[in-house]
Nucleic acid binder design. Structure first.
Length: 574
RNA sequence: GACUUGGUAGCUCAGCUGGUAGAGCACGUCCCUUUUAAGGAUGGGGUCCUGGGUUCGAGUCCCAGCCAGGUCACCA
């Protein structure tokens, strides 16, 4: 089907043809070497103009102001924007002024990418500007760009619609420079984390995304199928079990930045695929791991911002070590005023209900405590805080607490009311591990869709013997949200998952008209006249349709013979 | 999944108790040799998300649907 073009798109395609006619390749192949960036020029020029007598820069045209024989434009490269000055008689020293009058003024648009060379000067208005000697079209843009303007920090006509920003992220990145910066910061976060871990001599590894048995977390998976093996495979929900098998194999520190996939709800904090860094270190425990997390995150924050105190939304968050530490029972006592550590299931349930938490009978003691914490404590924990010692029911892969029965050696770091990491002294008792899996299987039989599966390969490895090990998972996206001050996960993912766009219902209208013997050029106009299908056309008054078509023909200046009234009547009768 | 707000030009948005679809920017044409979100003049551009209904008449009111945002629930 032929693409429907807006007037502006058509104008650009016409310009493209004209450029080719003038012998200009709108998509040239050869390298355009630059020797400066917009930022370098702006920062260094007035103090040091010797180096700027012959600059070559390239970028996308973001604005144009044409004033007769002189013009201003701004181009944007990765570093920012710089103003260009074009003078007709310098661009075109001879008699032929085509390059300025036609190519630049008429055939060049906002959004096109050009390379220029020239010298830098300061205009009367005080703006650092490149006086262009030569310019080269490097890429013709065929779609209009949303034009965002700014003065004194005030933004005009901002490109803000989240749907368009996420679906057309390239536009968002071109037009909203602060968005480009968020992703730069995200990259910096990961790089600093990687540097920190490599400095400890841990090994960065890769483990399978496609897994025959999914494990390592409580979540519903995505399911797929391998043809050759004719078997079901799952997209990983975690890589924990594979990394521990590497610890069994003798590496003493392994980590992976892993894309994980969970088939669950989507929202401000949830995307179906997300990034998690998991780390396992042999001969360590969760106490030690808390120290590592504090140090690593503090380091990253300092590296990114040069300070530990950040503004996140309306709050100030300080990542300076040491972070506060609460056991889960202490946190509950602190925020509810009641110590539940000695209560049995019935009393905890009664207490939970008394403070407005909904419970049901499938919830055991551990789940109730988890609910209490999630409802009454977690949202209040704004400063980075470690919560330790979780109920054993919630943590089938964590080692039982060395001294507190019913608990495991586990901690989470909570920040801005959300979990940012989860860690434990890893369970390495194979008998205990098998039992915990069997309890999970039982939960699964009772209908818990998130219950873990029993992974025999993993158990075999554990039975071979895994050294005592501390394990950690950090949610990179959520940490990035906090460290870049973004309110939703979609703002720290380049391409967040979106519902697929539905093709327009009327798209097949012209085809159904041509199928009924109506010439294509009239079919297109019929659609434009508002007839979405054949049956709506059949019900129309033939005289009205005839008039509409003639009107549209005139309006759109289409150079074809008008239809005859009888002809139209026949289409409608069918 | 529930509730809630919204969908009007390429972009940002106005459009009252229903009465011939608007603005700014962007785009076209003409004029203009240094402008600062915007040089001057002028012109074109719309399936008002889709489909039904009420009405002489619907961008506006009613119903259904699609899409998106926000809040909540599950989950990292």
């Amino acid at each position: 089907m032929k693409q429907q073009l807006s007037e502006q798109e058509q104008i650009r395609r016409d310009a493209l043809k004209e450029l080719r006619k003038l012998g200009i390749d709108p998509y040239p192949a050869r390298t355009f070497d630059i020797n400066a960036t917009a930022r370098e020029i702006r920062e260094a020029f007035p103090q040091d103009n010797k180096g700027f007598q012959d600059v070559r820069v390239a970028g996308r045209i973001m604005s144009r102001r044409i004033m007769g024989n002189a013009s201003f434009a701004e181009i944007q490269d990765e570093s920012g924007r710089i103003q260009l000055y074009f003078n007709r008689d310098e661009i075109c020293p001879g008699e032929d002024k085509t390059l300025y009058n036609t190519v630049f003024k008429r055939l060049t648009d906002i959004g096109d990418i050009i390379g220029v060379n020239g010298f830098v000067f300061t205009t009367r208005m005080g703006e650092t500007t490149i006086h262009v000697r030569e310019f080269t079209l490097l890429c013709k843009s065929l779609r209009p760009l949303p034009v965002v303007k700014e003065k004194d920090g005030k933004v005009y006509d901002a490109f803000t619609d989240p749907e368009q920003r996420y679906r057309q992220r390239h536009l968002d990145l071109i037009v909203n420079p602060e968005v480009r910066n968020v992703f730069r910061q995200r990259a910096m976060l990961m790089q600093q984390m990687r540097d920190f871990l490599l400095k400890q001599a841990y090994l960065e590894v890769e483990t399978p995304v496609l897994q025959p048995i999914y494990g390592g977390a409580a979540a519903r998976p995505f399911k797929t199928h391998h043809h050759t093996l004719d078997t079901t495979l799952y997209l990983r929900i975690a890589n924990e079990l594979y990394l521990k098998r590497l610890i069994v194999g003798g590496y003493e520190g392994v980590f992976e930045f892993a894309k994980d996939f969970r088939n669950e709800g989507m929202g401000r904090f949830h995307n179906p695929e997300f990034t998690q860094m998991e780390l396992y270190v042999a001969y360590k425990d969760y106490e030690w791991m808390m120290g590592l997390v504090e140090e690593m995150v503090e380091n990253i924050v300092l590296g990114m911002h040069g300070k530990t105190l950040l503004t996140v939304g309306e709050k100030s968050i300080d990542f300076r070590r040491p972070w506060k530490r609460y056991t889960m029972y202490e946190a509950i006592a602190h925020f509810t005023g009641r110590d539940v550590s000695e209560m049995n299931e019935t009393r905890i349930r009664a207490f939970a209900e008394s403070i407005g938490i909904e419970t049901d009978n499938t919830m055991g003691r551990g789940k109730l405590i988890d609910e209490l914490f999630g409802e009454k404590c977690e949202p209040h924990l704004i400063q980075p805080t470690f919560i330790t010692d979780y109920p054993v029911e919630m943590s089938p892969l964590a080692k039982k607490h060395r001294s507190k029965p019913g608990l495991v050696e586990r901690f989470e770091a909570i920040c801005n009311g959300k979990e940012i990491c989860n860690a434990f002294s890893e369970l390495n008792d194979p008998i205990d591990q098998r039992q915990r899996f069997e309890e999970q299987l039982e939960l699964g039989r009772r209908g818990d869709p998130e219950a873990m599966m029993l992974d025999e390969d993993f158990l075999k490895a554990i039975e071979t013997g895994m050294p005592p090990t501390a394990g950690l998972g950090i949610g990179i996206d959520r940490l990035a949200m906090i460290l870049t001050n973004q309110a939703s996960i979609q703002d720290v993912l380049f391409f967040p998952q979106m519902r697929p766009e539905k093709p327009a219902a009327a798209s097949s209208a012209t085809e159904s008209f041509t199928g009924a013997g109506i010439p294509e050029h009239w079919a297109v106009l019929l659609k434009q006249a508002g007839y979405s299908d054949l049956s709506s056309l059949r019900q129309a008054n033939p005289n009205k349709v005839f008039n509409q078509l003639c009107g549209l023909r005139k309006k759109l200046k289409i150079d074809i013979q008008p239809p005859r009234p009888e002809e139209v009547k026949e289409w409608i009768k069918g």
